[in-house]
Design a protein around this nucleic acid. Structure first.
Length: 460
DNA sequence: CGTATTTGACCTGCGC
DNA sequence: GCGCAGGTCAAATACG
C-alpha cells in the first residue's frame, strides 16, 4: 500500500458504491500521513465484486481542488473489511500529484489485470472440474453394462489364481478392461510373488483376522511430487528418527514420525527419485490419533482415502479413488490426471499417487515444484500434447475445441503464476488445501452464491 | 540447556 | 544358517 502514499490536499475518496470518504488530517500532526479506512462496508451493507481495483482522478480546471476516486474492492469478509488501512496525503504540487497518480494508476491497472487473471484461473478450474466430473459419470454409465460382464470374468480368473481382494463387484463395474491395461491403476497379479499374500484378505484359506488387520495397519500411501525442498510441507510436525541408504538409489531415505501427539503411529519416508532428483517420494504409513490442523487435513484426508480405498479392495479404478476422497482431500480438487498405482512388490500394500504427471514431463519443462494450477495439472481437457490420463478416458471422449481458445492466454497466465508461486515450495500444500476447499464448497453449495464461496476460500 | 538431527548399531524378515 | 536389506533405536552431536 505504499504506492498509495500520494499526498494531496482536499481529497475525497469515493468508494465503489459512491460513498465519499473525505480525507482529513489530524490537527496536531498536519505533516503526518492520515489513515483512511478504504474497506468499510457501504451504507447498504453490501460489497461488490472482490479483487477489482479501479482508480480515477478528477482534476478541476483551476487546479485548486482534486478529487480522487478510488474503488478498491478486496473482499466481502467483515474481517477483511475491518482490517486494512490506507494512508493518504500531505501537501504536494499538482504536477507531482498528477505524475504520482499516473504511476499509481498504472500499477493498479496492472494489479487489476493480475487479479482478473487469478479469478479467471479459479473459475476455469472449477468449470473444468465440473465438466470432467460430469463426463466421468456419463462414461461410467455408458460402460457399466458391458464392462460388468468383462470384469466379472476378470474377477473369476483372479479368483482361480487365489489373488483375492475383498472385491465389491459394484465398484468394479466402473472399471474398464483397458483401464487396467493402461496402468493408470495397476494391479499386479503376479500371484507367485511372496508379497501378494498381503492381499489375500478374503481368501478362504486365510482366516487369520489378526494378520489381516496387521496388514491393514501397515498399508502405505506414497505421494510423488516435484520439490527442491528436502521434504514437502503437509501441515504436520515430523521428527526425523533415521536415515538409510536404500539399495538401488544413491539418495538416502529419511524416516520421520509424527510428533503432533504423543504416541501417534503415523510415520513417513522421504526419498528422492534416483531417475529424477527433482521428484520427491513421500510414503505415509498409519493413521493419526489426534486432530489435525487445517493445513494438514488435505494431505491427511487424501492419504487416508487412498489407504481406505486400497484396503477396502476397491482399487481398480481411479473413479473409485474419487469416491473415497472427501471434498477436503487433495485429490478431490486435483484434476484426475494423477497417476495412481498399486504396488504389490513392496513388503506392504502401497498405493502411489503420482503428482509429477510424467506424461507431460517428457515434453514440457516443469518448474521445480508443481503449481497445482499449471496447465498440465488442470483437469485435462484433451488439448494437443496433453493426453488424458484418467484411467481409460481417452482423448476421443472430449471435445478438444471447447477450451482451445483459452489455452494460449491460459499458458501465459500459468507461466507467470507458476514462476511467482514456485518461489515458495511450501505454498503448494496450502494452496492445494485452499483449492480443494473451493471445489468442495462448490460441490456442497451447488445452488449457493458462487462469489461468496470464492470470497470465503480466497480468504482461506 | 532443551530440542532436533545425525549416524552407527541392532532387530527383523526374507531369499538362497 | 547366513547374508542382505529395510526399518528402528538410541547415544552422540548440532543448534538455537
Amino acid at each position: 500500500m505504499s504506492i498509495m502514499e500520494a499526498r494531496c490536499e482536499n481529497m475525497v475518496l469515493n468508494s465503489f458504491d459512491g460513498h465519499k470518504f473525505p480525507i482529513t488530517r489530524h490537527e496536531n500532526e498536519s505533516s503526518k500521513i492520515d489513515e483512511m479506512d478504504f474497506f468499510s462496508r457501504s451504507s447498504s451493507g453490501s460489497l461488490k465484486n472482490p479483487l477489482s481495483i479501479d482508480v480515477k482522478e478528477e482534476e478541476q480546471q483551476d487546479g485548486a481542488h482534486q478529487e480522487l476516486q478510488l474503488n478498491l474492492n478486496v473482499g466481502s469478509s467483515p474481517t477483511t473489511t475491518n482490517g486494512a488501512k490506507m494512508n493518504v496525503g500531505s501537501p504536494c504540487t499538482n504536477n507531482q500529484t498528477t505524475h504520482k497518480m499516473a504511476i499509481l494508476q498504472a500499477q493498479l491497472e496492472k494489479m487489476k489485470r493480475e487479479n482478473e487473471g487469478l479469478r479467471s484461473m479459479v473459475s476455469q478450474v472449477k468449470e473444468r472440474y465440473v465438466f470432467l466430473q460430469k463426463h466421468i459419470q456419463e462414461n461410467i454409465i455408458s460402460h457399466e453394462t458391458s464392462e460388468n460382464i468383462k470384469m466379472n470374468e476378470v474377477v473369476k480368473e483372479d479368483t482361480k489364481q487365489s489373488l483375492l481382494f475383498p472385491l465389491e463387484f459394484n465398484n468394479l463395474n466402473q472399471i474398464t478392461k483397458p483401464e487396467v491395461d493402461n496402468n493408470m491403476m495397476k494391479i499386479d497379479s503376479n500371484v507367485d510373488s511372496p508379497h501378494n499374500k498381503d492381499f489375500k484378505f478374503n481368501s478362504p484359506r486365510d482366516g487369520d483376522r489378526v494378520a489381516v488387520e496387521a496388514t491393514m495397519r501397515r498399508a502405505r500411501v506414497s505421494v510423488r511430487a516435484r520439490s527442491e525442498a528436502s521434504m514437502i510441507s503437509d501441515g504436520c510436525q515430523w521428527r526425523k528418527y533415521g536415515q538409510k541408504m536404500a539399495k538401488g538409489n544413491p539418495c538416502p531415505r529419511a524416516y520421520y514420525r509424527c510428533t503432533m501427539a504423543v504416541g501417534c503411529p503415523v510415520r513417513k519416508q522421504v526419498q528422492r527419485c534416483a531417475e529424477d532428483r527433482t521428484v520427491l517420494t513421500t510414503t505415509y504409513e498409519g493413521t493419526h490419533n489426534h486432530p489435525l490442523p487445517q493445513a494438514a487435513t488435505a494431505m491427511a484426508s487424501t492419504t487416508s482415502a487412498a489407504a481406505s480405498m486400497l484396503l477396502s479392495g476397491s482399487i481398480s479404478s481411479s473413479n473409485n479413488l474419487n469416491h473415497h476422497l472427501t471434498s477436503g482431500s487433495m485429490l478431490s480438487s486435483y484434476p484426475p490426471n494423477i497417476t495412481t498405482s498399486l504396488s504389490s512388490t513392496a513388503p506392504f500394500p502401497t498405493i502411489t499417487l503420482d503428482l509429477t504427471n510424467p506424461s507431460t514431463n517428457q515434453h514440457i519443462p516443469q518448474p521445480p515444484f508443481h503449481f497445482p494450477f499449471s496447465t498440465n495439472m488442470l483437469p485435462n481437457i484433451n488439448l494437443p500434447n496433453r493426453p488424458l490420463v484418467l484411467g481409460q478416458l481417452s482423448s476421443q471422449h472430449f471435445n478438444a475445441t471447447k477450451f482451445a481458445d483459452v489455452q494460449s492466454s491460459e499458458q501465459e497466465l500459468m507461466s507467470a503464476a507458476t514462476a511467482a508461486v514456485t518461489a515458495d515450495p511450501n505454498f503448494m500444500a496450502a494452496l492445494v488445501a485452499a483449492i480443494g476447499s473451493i471445489i468442495g464448497n462448490d460441490q456442497r453449495n451447488n445452488g449457493g452464491s458462487k462469489n461468496e464461496n470464492d470470497n470465503d476460500n480466497m480468504r482461506n
